[in-house]
Each structure stands twice: as structure tokens, then as C-alpha cells.
Design a protein around this nucleic acid. Structure first.
Lengths: 215, 215
DNA sequence: ATATTTTGACTGAATGTTCATTCAAAATAT
DNA sequence: ATATTTTGAATGAACATTCAGTCAAAATAT
């Protein structure tokens, strides 16, 4: 069972730091959510997945509910950290920023089947659990608001006729829907999804964006 | 508890037809999924919601799993029946058909918080349950294929430069995402979602569709 | 340096709860 | 009278949670 030698000082030494154990358990939780879904994820599954004993989750997280909240928090932080970083890297021009956000959403690091499936497991429970809903909703509001600002800027520059609020809502919805379909539909690849998203913004902002990049 | 008098011959006569009982239980299941989510929906909840006794579900459906599959099947049939009917009513012109499909998706009868929440409960479980995935996926494929055909027709008529596959994927994804946000976000109304969807197709097919209707 | 004590992460068997399912009896219909 | 439907208590399986005990490493004493 305990095959790992001394090599991995963090992972299997009897005393790993509390933080290390916590993230180890959070990763195992994501694995289980992705493989088994929300309702079939048990603490036994998580503990087995982490290669630790049965009581371990309650020791580090007090309860199953708190483990799940910590897991969602972790994914949420990672996601919003990622798109905020992409925004920082992009220049100040609105078209560049939109381009960066769209590409960030389909980045290899963020947009894996494993993570999408875990997200979806939480979404399915979110409406009936205020805690999950709050965690999912918080980022979303920021994210959509960012798009409203950018669409407003492009409209001012380019003289498009659209309502920026409606446009931003449409774009954000499309990207969420693409994520969802990536998870559900085995035929769809990250590349195709990204291409569809870009085709759309290129169609909507023809003066600023084309399928091959920002003009 | 049992307040309903004789009035409702279908609902509380001791012998309601098997089919009547089944749909009564299916409706109670949708209620519970919407209120409590998938993982907190129990047979006791469903039976209570229907105003019947605890053992009743197993009598009519054999198992919880079969009740849930029947419920999903019911929602799926209703949904695809609705958009197919909308297509029949619309004329043969591609732009009219797209307009009809989009409006159908946000129709008052289909697009209720209750039903969206129930859909979402199933989506969250679908990736790890082949039966659900098959039921969700079947319609979706038809639906998206319908849009591919329509986008192809518009492209031929209007000389747009888009790839019809990518465009159809984008549109379907957006509508799914809008449904999702309708369920999650209390500030969003059916009317705003519909307006965003229409703005989207109007932007993409400017020669055929405007925000006020088909040209 | 070596031995002893203390610390705190970790284990896994035991416990109690929740829940789907079963079924014998009751109610109702034919 | 017989068949069908409904009830609700009983059953047992699955699961989260608890906790007394184990163990490795750190701290301290000799």
C-alpha cells in the first residue's frame, strides 16, 4: 500500500504540513467529483483516493460539507486568479483584453475535463445550497461586469449598435455553455470550442477582431 | 394534510389510473429536485409532496433510479416536443425558423425556474451516469444539428463568411448558458435572456434578423 | 551523544443516522 | 369474492462522524 519511499517528503511522511494535507484532500475530492459526481462522492472515496485513512477528512476539515466548500473555494480562486492574470498580461486595449479573456477560459490549465466535471457537480447542487451559489455567483458577477466594460469601450470606439449589457451577457453565457458542452459531449474539443467563441466575437466586433487575432 | 376534497377526481380518488399516479409522482419529483437538488431528494420527500404514502414510489416505479429516469425522460420529451412544434408552426424560411426556435426556448411554459432547476440537477449528475447523459445528449444533438442546417441555409442566402458548425455551436451554447444563468442569477429575467439571445443572432445575421424580428 | 518525554498528525473500529426497499395488512374497486 | 392499489412499520445497507489509541518526529533532559 505504502509504496512511496522517502523521496516524496511532502506527500507521505507521517507529518506533512496541515496545508499540504488539505490540498491533497481537495485534489482527491475533485477527482472523485469528476469520476463519480456529487451524490456518489463519499468521504471514504476521498480518503482512499488520497491514500489516507477513513477518519482523515473529519480531522482536517471537520465535516464533509466543509471539505466541499473548501474545494469549491479552491477552484473558484484558481479560476478567477487565472483570468485576472490574463487581463494583467494583456495590454490596455479593449479588443486585446477580450481576446485574452476568451483564450484564458479555454486554457489547457483551466479547462480540463476533470475540472469541468467538478464544476458541473457543484452547479447541480448550487441552486439549493446558498453557500455554493454565493461562491459560484461572486466570480461570475465580476467576470460579466468586466465584459460589460469592454463591450462598452468597443462600442464607443467602433460605433457598434449593440446594447453592451446584452452583448456581455450573451458572450459570458456562450462561454459557460461551451464549457458545459465540452464536459458532456465527447466529440467536442477545447480547440473547437475556442474557435466557436472566437468566431462569435469576430462576427460581433468585425472592426476589432477577426478569427486570426485582434486587428 | 389531506385537504383535497372529492373535487379533484383524478388526484385523490383512491384509484387513479396508473398513468395518473405516475405523472403525479413525476411532478412531485420535479418539485423536489427544484427545491432540494438531486442529492437531497428522497423518496419520502417525493411521496410527501404528492400527498401519498412512503411505499408508493416503489410500487409504481420499482426503484428510485427508475423514477428519476422517467422524470428526465418526461422533461426531455416535453422539451423536444415543444421546439419541434415551434418549428412546424414557423414557415419554411431559415430566418423564421431560427427566430421560432429561440423564442420557443424562452417560452413561459418551458423556461420556468422550477424546470430549469430540475434540469440542472440532472446535468450535475449526467457526466457520471450514462443513462442521464444519453437522455440529455440525444435531444441536444438533434437540436444543434437543426441549427447547423439553418445556419448553412442562411450562409448560402446571405453570403456570410462563418463556419456554420461553429456558429450553431455558439448559438446553442449561448442558449444553454442563458438557461443556466436564469436559474442561478436572480437578477436575470426571461425577457432579458431572450433579448440577449436575439441580439446575438441579429448581430451575426444582420441581413436576415434584427432585434425587432425577421427581415 | 543518548535516552526520555511531549506533541500532534493519523488510524480504523464503533456509533448513530439517513434512506431505499420490502412486505403484511388495510382499503378500495370490480 | 377477488384483484388492485395503498399504507406505514420494519429491515438492512451505506455513510458521516467520533474517539481512544498509535506512531513518528521534535523537544528536552541526562
Amino acid at each position: 500500500m505504502n509504496i512511496v519511499p522517502a523521496l516524496d517528503g511532502e506527500r507521505k511522511s507521517r507529518k506533512a504540513s496541515k496545508e499540504t494535507r488539505r490540498s491533497q484532500l481537495i485534489e482527491a475530492t475533485i477527482d472523485s467529483l469528476a469520476k463519480r459526481g456529487y451524490s456518489d462522492t463519499t468521504l471514504a472515496n476521498v480518503a482512499d483516493g488520497a491514500g489516507l485513512s477513513r477518519g482523515i477528512v473529519n480531522f482536517h476539515f471537520e465535516s464533509k460539507e466543509k471539505l466541499l466548500v473548501a474545494t469549491l473555494q479552491h477552484m473558484s480562486d484558481e479560476y478567477s486568479g487565472h483570468w485576472n492574470a490574463a487581463l494583467e498580461k494583456a495590454g490596455p486595449r479593449a479588443a486585446d483584453r477580450i481576446w485574452a479573456l476568451i483564450n484564458a477560459d479555454f486554457d489547457r490549465r483551466i479547462c480540463t475535463k476533470r475540472k469541468l466535471a467538478a464544476w458541473c457537480a457543484f452547479w447541480g447542487e448550487a441552486k439549493s445550497r446558498p453557500t455554493y451559489q454565493a461562491l459560484c455567483g461572486m466570480n461570475d458577477r465580476d467576470y460579466q461586469q468586466t465584459f460589460v466594460t469592454l463591450c462598452t469601450a468597443l462600442k464607443a470606439e467602433g460605433g457598434y449598435g449593440y446594447d453592451p449589457e446584452a452583448m456581455a451577457l450573451g458572450i459570458c453565457s456562450m462561454m459557460e455553455g461551451l464549457w458545459f458542452r465540452l464536459m458532456m459531449n465527447d466529440g467536442l474539443t477545447r480547440e473547437k470550442a475556442l474557435a466557436a467563441a472566437i468566431e462569435y466575437v469576430a462576427a460581433v466586433f468585425p472592426d476589432h477582431i477577426s478569427t486570426s487575432g485582434v486587428k
